[in-house]
């Protein structure tokens, strides 16, 4: 078990969670961030890295990926610690009144303050909306590859038409018994190089390509025996297989945050607008995940919320220190923290 002590635990490394590192850092608070994605940036990184954003103050236009890169540069002086690819799973109060957060990877973080900046929730794989699919999950239906070796000799159907589907179909081909790529149309949004390799393998009959949609899963006791697939304008038929790897992209679900013991309203965390603290003292909620009268789900709202949150968090982390409001323009103290030369 890996355990860390810090000042503030931030759940969610999207733009708002990242900017919170900056606001906390100006007031000497160190932060650890947890995010289920394997990269910082949240929706900006996962949903629209290439799309333009026009409403970040003073940045007329930048893409989602650029915004994340700029924020990462801005918070660099504060050396945040990232725990990526991990889901914040359990939040408990310690006997000393601190918060202990445990991730699904077993990382344990302890801090006096927790900031939930989880946006629309955790990104989780989209599951095909089939009634009985749950019975197979974890045994013969998977949405990720944890151990490649587990797929040796299997008769695998990889469903999807993006990079994940193509990458894993190609990656598992050498060790699978048989591999079939299932996609609804004969056009792939994956890297052209991967698509080329896939086409070659299909031509050499090292891989099967089925252009159809998944209709149903069949099997017994959690073990898949076949999939029912339907090509456009044709009858459905069975494809025999023992393993399904489905890559239909990600969707956001609130996840374990729902069990953190906070008041929730329509899956959002109500906060007061003085400091964005939740119903539980020392737990704050900022960005898209919070709710208050007049809330607008904008990145810039989250930035503002981060600043006010940091002021209140300071009182918890440093109960004996007086909060001194300063400007980065004129404060040599803040400039030192940002790693700059002393102001003239």
């Amino acid at each position: 078990m890996e355990k860390h002590h810090t000042d503030v635990i931030i759940v969610g490394a999207g733009p708002v969670g990242l900017f919170a590192v900056f606001e906390l850092g100006l007031y000497d608070m160190k932060a650890h961030l947890v995010d289920i994605l394997d990269k910082p940036g949240g929706q900006c990184a996962e949903l629209y890295p290439e799309k333009p954003i026009y409403d970040i103050p003073a940045i007329p236009v930048c893409t989602g990926a650029e915004l994340v890169a700029r924020l990462m540069e801005q918070i660099k002086p504060f050396h945040p610690t990232f725990h990526l690819g991990q889901m914040a799973e359990k939040l408990e109060k310690t006997p000393e009144g601190k918060w202990q957060l445990t991730t699904d990877a077993g990382t344990v973080l302890e801090a006096p303050v927790v900031v939930i900046a989880a946006g629309g929730g955790s990104f989780m794989p989209k599951k095909p909306p089939l009634k009985n699919i749950e019975a197979f999950e974890g045994q013969s239906v998977f949405y990720a590859v944890r151990k490649r070796e587990n797929f040796r000799g299997k008769n695998i159907v990889v469903a999807g038409g993006g990079d994940s589907a193509l990458d894993w179909a190609l990656n598992l081909q050498p060790l699978a018994g048989r591999i079939t790529l299932l996609h609804r149309r004969d056009d792939f949004r994956a890297a052209p190089d991967s698509v080329g390799k896939m086409r070659e393998m299909v031509a050499e009959k090292k891989m099967d390509l089925v252009i159809a949609q998944l209709l149903d899963v069949k099997g017994d006791g959690g073990q898949l025996s076949s999939l029912v697939v339907k090509p456009e304008g044709a009858e459905a038929y069975d494809v025999a297989c023992d393993t399904l790897l489905a890559f239909y992209g990600l969707t956001m679900k609130l996840g374990p945050v729902a069990n953190f013991g906070l008041n929730l309203h329509e899956n959002l965390i109500p906060v007061n607008t003085a400091d964005f603290e939740s119903s539980e003292a020392r737990i704050f909620a900022i960005g898209d995940i919070n709710a208050y009268p007049g809330k607008l789900k904008l990145i810039l709202s989250g930035f503002h919320e981060a600043a006010l949150m940091a002021k209140k968090a300071f009182a918890y982390v440093y109960p004996d220190r007086k909060y001194r409001f300063q400007y980065t323009t004129s404060s040599s103290d803040l400039q030192n923290k940002l790693g700059l030369e002393k102001a003239a």
Binding site: K126, P129, G160, G161, G162, R185, R189, Q213, Y248, G249
Partner: peptide, 13 residues
């Protein structure tokens, strides 16, 4: 839009 529908289920004409 057509590409994004790859992430939907039971896609029809």
């Amino acid at each position: 839009e057509i590409g994004m529908l790859d992430g939907a289920f039971d896609v029809q004409k």
